[in-house]
Amino acid sequence: MGAPLAVVAAVARTVAQLWDKPLLGVNHCVGHIEMGRMVTGAHDPTVLYVSGGNTQVIAYSQRRYRIFGETIDIAVGNCLDRFARVLKISNDPSPGYNIEQMAKKGQKLVELPYTVKGMDVSFSGILSHIEEVSHKMLASGECTPEDLCFSLQETVFAMLVEITERAMAHCGSQEVLIVGGVGCNLRLQEMMGIMCEERGAKLFATDERFCIDNGAMIAQAGWEMFRSGQVTTLEDSWITQRYRTDEVEVTWRD
């Protein structure tokens, strides 16, 4: 992601100077969270941030979005996308969407590794396992591609719901907000909704217009930062691909 960051930074710095306006550097995940909070009206949610590049469970405490758990290898969206390639599932409109549709026709739950490690999760082993066994199982008629889509979704989403629930228990939180591209998945929303209902908590989720990366989320987080008095000087506006969610001081919340 170095090249797109460099491009947008150069343009943003130029425009800020041309128009003599303040510049604000925004953390990507904080963009997702702030837009999600604004769009759904969630007040102080436990956040599940799931996309092609990140998988984190986050809760706010004392001016930081703190990471309670995360993937120790690949992101859940990356796991789904690569699984789609193994099964030669179409990229149109997106691999995740097609997996979701196929999963609705799944009949059989194929047992897959369930890899929750404390508050963290791991997806690379599940992917390797599927890569190894899927073609054999499909050739022998042991299961269908739809069964595999269904089984993979059920397994990885159950893992995500588990660590989200544990974070809620830690914080005494009664709200969950799902953000990031994988957050579009209605089955994930449904499973999270069941967990929330059992705990008397409330689920906040959005559709693909807000889940998928967009400029408005950066604008919203930037606006919150600006309102609380932050600006980024040109010298401090260097880009980085290693900018963790908990590095940001959240000056706009109590």
Binding site: V11, T14, V15
Partner: peptide
């Protein structure tokens, strides 16, 4: 590459506002 981008941005969004 970046210089070209900055020059194009100036053409599209400039000239600089008076200050």
């Amino acid at each position: 590459d970046h210089l070209g981008l900055v020059v194009e941005t100036m053409e599209q969004f400039g000239p600089p506002v008076p200050r």
